[in-house]
């Protein structure tokens, strides 16, 4: 499918008139659309909720691959959280991504079952310096200081699991952890905040995305610059709390998307940011940062986390190998 080919060996319209097609067909005529498919393993693939070894893999469970702790403001819907396996399909056209997921789920019936799925749109972070920074549903540029693929040293240090980092799970060396968090935004309430307040909460201007300490989008924030009432980038500004300077230098590779899943029972948009980050170790690169944010971030008034999951993403494979081969080797 990543080459724009059908999911099955026969094709959506080439097979027997008496059989259901082995490809569902909605991608006929569409290009591959930059489709990528990323797979991950959840903690419950290794051990069930009672700690029992499910498939004889428990001795290879990575140290940090545990159900994420409860964070303040987490109101998790179990039907939108957790999972044994995950598949992230990304493409330039939602139809292509949905086609991939749908056909993989179909192939898997009987062996795997779908627990939850989430469709996103409008990438919320740049992953390359060639892209301009897109906006989240708060209307702000999001992911200005995301790790870019060109920053190879940072990718190495913050995204990939280093060989020897986890003695029990060396199969994960060269892989990563995928953190998924469904941040529901309180859209209607947010929209009633003055521009000045919105910018103070974020710590950047809405227009260009420059930090409130001045400059342009990519100017480094100056957290000590004095303002009229305390620092010009407020103590509870989002950009300050999640910045590497206040988190032992930790950076993330974010690959999240906006979502709108219709409206809720009282007519509000069921919308927000489907946060996805790749990190080398959630214990150092996600959990402390999420805690700092949940505790002090001005944005927390306007978000509620309704879904949460953590997966270990195995390293890439050579031709002829299968996904996750290192785990089963």
């Amino acid at each position: 499918m990543t080459r724009g080919l059908p999911a099955g060996e026969i094709g959506p319209t080439e097979g027997s008139i008496n059989l259901p097609p082995d490809d569902t067909g909605e991608a006929i005529g569409l290009p591959a659309g930059g489709l990528t498919i990323t797979f991950g393993f959840g903690p419950t693939l290794f051990r069930d909720d009672d700690g029992r070894d499910r498939f004889g893999l428990a001795d290879r469970q990575p140290q940090a691959l545990r159900t994420l702790p409860h964070f303040p403001a987490d109101v998790l819907d179990p039907a939108k959280s957790y999972g044994d396996l995950c598949v992230q399909a990304c493409a330039d056209d939602p139809q292509v991504a949905v086609h991939a997921i749908r056909n993989l789920a179909r192939i898997g019936f009987g062996t795997v079952a779908v627990r939850w799925s989430q469709l996103g749109f409008g990438r919320t972070s740049t992953t390359s310096t060639a892209q301009s920074t897109p906006r989240n549903l708060f209307g702000f540029k999001d992911g200005t200081s995301n790790i870019k693929s060109e920053e190879t040293k940072d990718v190495e240090e913050h995204v990939w699991v280093a060989p020897g980092a986890d003695a029990k799970a060396d199969w994960l060396a060269g892989g990563s952890y995928l953190v998924a968090r469904r941040f529901n935004m309180n859209i209607e309430i947010w929209d009633r905040q003055s521009l000045g307040d919105q910018e103070d909460f974020i710590g950047r201007t809405k227009d260009t995305g420059a930090p409130l300490s001045g400059g342009t989008e990519f100017t480094e924030p100056d957290f000590s610059m004095p303002g009229s009432n305390g620092p010009v980038i407020a103590k509870d500004a989002h950009v300050r709390l999640v910045h590497p300077d206040f988190n032992h230098g930790a950076r993330m590779l974010r690959r999240g998307y906006n979502f709108v899943d219709g409206s809720n029972a009282i007519g509000g948009l069921d919308a927000g940011l489907f946060f996805i980050a790749y990190v080398c170790d959630p214990d150092t690169h996600f959990i402390p940062i999420q805690n700092a944010m949940a505790k002090s971030d001005a944005l927390m008034e306007y978000v509620k986390v309704t879904g949460s999951a953590l997966f270990a993403v195995p390293p890439g494979i050579e031709p002829g190998e299968y996904v996750g081969q290192s785990l089963f080797a």
Binding site: G42, C90, A113, L119, R123, S132, P134
Partner: peptide
């Protein structure tokens, strides 16, 4: 009996970045 695995499917589609700035 085999326990079915539970899959979380993450679908995500970036929009093609707009090329012009307002």
């Amino acid at each position: 009996m085999r326990t079915p695995l539970i899959v979380a499917l993450l679908l995500a589609t970036p929009l093609v970045a707009a090329c012009t700035e307002n």
